[in-house]
Every structure is written in C-alpha cells, then in structure tokens.
C-alpha cells in the first residue's frame, strides 16, 4: 500500500509539475521606432513576461526619442549645431552610440554613412509616408554630393562632438534600430529574462531558446510570398535584412527605394536584399545597409572589414550570394535557387 501511495504521489507531482513548469510563449505587439515591434518572451510567469514587454517598449522608445532624425529630438538639435559649425556637449551614452557608428562607417569604407542625412531628407525619406512625387533633381543631388559628408568628418571626444564639414547631418536610420534592440535585450538579460525575441519591423535579436529547441527564424522572400530561407538561433544572435522593398516610392514608372548610395546620391542599384547574422544587432543593422550598397562585387571585402561572416545577398537576378558560414547554417525553402557561395576562406 505504501508503495502504491508513493507511486501515486510521484505521478501526481510529476503530472502537476509537467503543467506548471514548462514556460509559455508570450507575445506582444508594440508600435514604436516607427514600426511594428513584436516581442516574444518565454516565461513561466505571465506577469514577468508582461514586465519584459514593458522594458522593451521603454528602451526602444528612449532610443527612438533620442535619435529620431526628423522629429524634434536631441539628434535634430545636434544637427542644427553641426550645420552652424558649433561643438556640441554630449553625454556618455551619446558618445558610445556615435563612436560605434563611426567605427562601423570606417570599416564599411563609408558605405554605411550616417552623415548623409541631408541627402536622405532631399529624397523625401524624412517622413513617415513618402508620397509618390518626383525624385530630386540631379543638380540638387550633386550639390549635396560635392561636400561629401561622412563620419570621418566628425571629431569625437567623450564629452564633445564637432564636425569640420558643415554638410554633415546625422541620420542613424541604418543603425538606431539595431542599437535600440541591443539596449532592450541587454535590459531584458539584466532583469533575468533568458529566452526572448525582439523583432522590430522584421529585424530581430533572439536570446536563449524555446523550451530546449532553437528559435526558428524565417527569412521572407524579397520578391514573392512566403519564406525564402530559414535558420535556427540558439543563445544570442541578431538577424537583420535591408531590402529595396521596405520603403520606396514610384514615380513615372520608376521605383525609388530608401537605401541611398552615398557615392552616387541615388538608391543603390543591383541588390534586392542583404541579410546579416551577427551577435550585435547594431553591427548587423549597419552591415546589412553597407553591404546592400557595396553590391554583389564588393560585399565580401566590406563584410570582412566589418567583422561579419554570415551574410546573404540577393541580387536582381535573384541569385543568392552567401558566405560559406551562412550557406552552412541556412536552410533554403525554395526550389532551384541560383547559389553563389563566396570566399573560400574568410
């Protein structure tokens, strides 16, 4: 009888623990950073998951308010001072942010160029909705290209920021989102959240796993419905894609997208999308943009310089160019893809 009771108790305990111990997936959608943010948290406790979502929301909102490129923000004030040739006093967080962006810009040979805010504004992308109106004239573009603003013009100390080129107008559109996600994830980890995905408008960082199995990420097909490839993430990685389909406008039969090549002053040609996997979301964000602009010829060199070794570039012929490391871990979800695996040794 004792034996039976022991078994019974064990079975009950086992059964009950089976119910309560497996953490549930909690999902929330937020609207911040000018996009839809999807927060996935795996946690036993619903209240803890809700707190995690609040943490993400507040971190993303803070970075958004700080670095917004066209609504009144500390960044627009910095830009006003830079245009006047003034030196701006900055705090430690601002220093770290701009320093990281400056380093990435330098490694990308200024393909990632957050100093061309004036050019982006000229193209009309400093608005939530770009109307389908005429693109800027060649003269206007040339006028901005002549002064060639870049992050190399910036002089940065831990407390001050200045530029020896008054044409520098900072716009961290290709970096702020990654930085914000990194901040949010760091705060999540501090507060004890081990398994989560922060996905802001398709760009994401995932930590931990989903109940002993990896997080599964689908990469959307850039020109068709569905998923072009998928991959699994264990522990902590970011997946960022820059695509010509993300923001664009049409004018007299021509499509103009938002990734402006700082060399030509026009939307970068030849690439449809670039996907980068890297631990840091900020690096992945900047690299996806830089490699998009670098194009099918130059991207392997720039990728090496930026320290990213998991890259997939899709060109206009829908050929998939990949680093060997990317090719190894990615699972294609389409038939008869044209594959080009680049660079035997990294």
């Amino acid at each position: 009888m004792k034996w039976l009771w022991l078994n019974l108790t064990l079975l009950l305990a086992f059964g009950l623990s089976g119910c309560s111990e497996s953490p549930q997936v909690h999902q929330a959608k937020l609207f911040t950073l000018g996009t839809l943010v999807d927060v996935t948290v795996l946690h036993r406790d619903e209240a803890a998951a809700a707190r995690a979502v609040e943490i993400v929301e507040s971190e993303l909102a803070t970075v958004n308010a700080q670095w917004h490129a066209w609504r009144d923000s500390p960044l627009t004030q910095i830009n006003q001072q830079l245009a006047l040739g003034n030196t701006v006093a900055i705090d430690a967080a601002t220093y770290r942010f701009i320093q990281q962006a400056q380093t990435l810009a330098s490694h990308s040979e200024q393909r990632f160029n957050p100093a061309i805010g004036a050019l982006v504004a000229l193209w009309g992308f400093h608005s939530d909705e770009r109307p389908d109106s005429a693109p800027p004239t060649q003269e206007a573009i040339n006028a901005l290209l002549k002064s060639a603003p870049s992050m190399a013009d910036i002089t940065l100390t831990e407390t001050t920021l200045s530029s020896n080129n008054r044409a520098v107008q900072l716009d961290f559109g290709a970096f702020g989102k990654g930085y914000a996600i990194d901040q949010a994830v760091a705060r999540l980890k501090q507060s004890g959240i081990e398994n989560a995905i922060v996905n802001a408008g398709g760009d994401l960082r995932a930590i931990g796993s989903k109940n002993e199995r990896p997080w599964r990420i689908g990469i959307r097909h850039p020109t068709a419905a569905g998923v072009i490839a998928s991959l699994e993430i264990i522990d902590d990685e970011s997946v960022f894609t820059s695509g010509n389909y993300e923001r664009f406008f049409d004018f007299s039969g021509q499509r103009y997208h938002h990734i402006i090549d700082p060399r030509s002053g026009y939307p970068a040609q030849g690439t449809v999308s670039v996907t980068v996997i890297h631990r840091s979301a900020a690096v992945a964000d900047a690299a996806a943009t830089a490699l998009f602009i670098a194009g099918a010829e130059q991207w392997p060199r720039i990728a090496r310089q930026m320290g990213v070794d998991e890259v997939m570039l899709i060109d206009e012929q829908l050929t998939l160019h990949m680093t060997p490391k990317m090719a190894q871990r990615i699972q294609l979800e389409i038939d008869d893809a044209e594959l080009n695996i680049v660079g035997g040794e990294q």
Binding site: T40, G202, L204, A206, R216, I217, G218, I219, R220, G243
Partner: peptide
C-alpha cells in the same frame, strides 16, 4: 501550417 513553423520572421 506556415505560421507556427517560425517563431519570428525576418524581412
């Protein structure tokens, strides 16, 4: 189906 296959979609 398609939806539960992935925990998150990148684009």
């Amino acid at each position: 189906g398609d939806a539960p296959r992935f925990d998150s979609i990148n684009f």
